[in-house]
Design a protein around this nucleic acid. Structure first.
Lengths: 156, 156
DNA sequence: TGCAATGTCGATTGGATTGGTCGAGTATTT
DNA sequence: AAATACTCGACCAATCCAATCGACATTGCA
């Protein structure tokens, strides 16, 4: 039932990128900068940002003065979307997944108790994460950094 | 965010064992029988039942005519307890786990957005699974088997 | 007493996943 | 052309997952 490092890093990195473009709109931020500020291994972060880009959450520009920025407003990026992109389906068991449904071994899904319980779990996780938007996380960090001028940078 | 086979099998096996002792109180049921009825590999099931026994969910009797039975009433066994026993903490990230707390890398947990979101997820998962009791699952199977005299036995 | 049925337990295994690294590309700007 | 970035694929060690094996301990019964 765990969130992987990839998923965790993705969220932390997105907050950093979103925070940046909140402060200076249209600005790009480089992998290496994000890596330093968040303390995420650079080459690992590279993979993660690439996945986010391919998933339509980030956009990138190559070459000198290149970098990453959000592909859409931080009010349109949900934790659910991000975590699914890096960690796969939220459902604890494939027979209750909408995005990656797979039949399980019980003969009658409708009456399978385990399935009914896991269905509830899935709905509840998705209900939370699909409504938790990036702007909310950025706002929290903004407040926090305003009062505590971040001795560390990696604080989401 | 997934439930392992161990967790899944544990629940399926417990329903079978609980169903049996519901039908014939005080009766014991052998690993091999549970394995056949649930279609779980016998040696793998052995490990699982042992863990459930050591966790106080099952009790066992050795030797001829031995077997397993529930260590307490099916109304006192929750899915949360069972899944924690086999799969570890429910929390998606250790910094929101009650049973296995571990500090994460953000300097201020109280204002960490990711943590706040995951806290909600944890509470909601635990809220569901810690209130979902075995008797409810057994009841569902009982109803189902009454109407459909189980061509398959492994149907939870 | 002996033996067969049963649970107990530790070791091992093959494969997948996780977390991460490396190095050679390719695009873009100056 | 050179410098700066992102892109992409291969690789790696460690861990976990699912399952299997073999030896052993306990019990009931003949």
């Amino acid at each position: 039932m765990r969130l992987s490092k990839k998923g965790e890093y993705a969220v932390r990195a997105l907050v950093e990128i979103g925070f940046e473009s909140d402060a200076r709109p249209q600005s790009l931020i480089q992998i290496s900068t994000v890596a330093q500020r968040t303390n995420i291994p650079e080459k690992f972060l590279e993979q993660i940002l690439l996945a986010l880009r391919n998933g339509g959450v980030l956009k990138s520009k190559r070459g000198v003065e290149g970098g990453y920025s959000l592909a859409k407003g931080p009010d349109q990026i949900t934790l659910g979307e991000v975590i699914r992109l890096l960690d796969g389906p939220l459902a604890p068991i494939p027979c209750v997944s909408l995005s990656a449904y797979e039949k399980c071994s019980c003969p009658d899904e409708a009456s399978c108790g385990l399935r009914i319980a896991m269905q509830q779990v899935r709905d509840s996780i998705a209900g939370i994460l699909d409504n938790y938007k990036l702007d909310r996380l950025i706002e929290e960090v903004r407040k926090h950094r305003a009062t505590q001028p971040s001795e560390w940078q990696f604080d989401i």
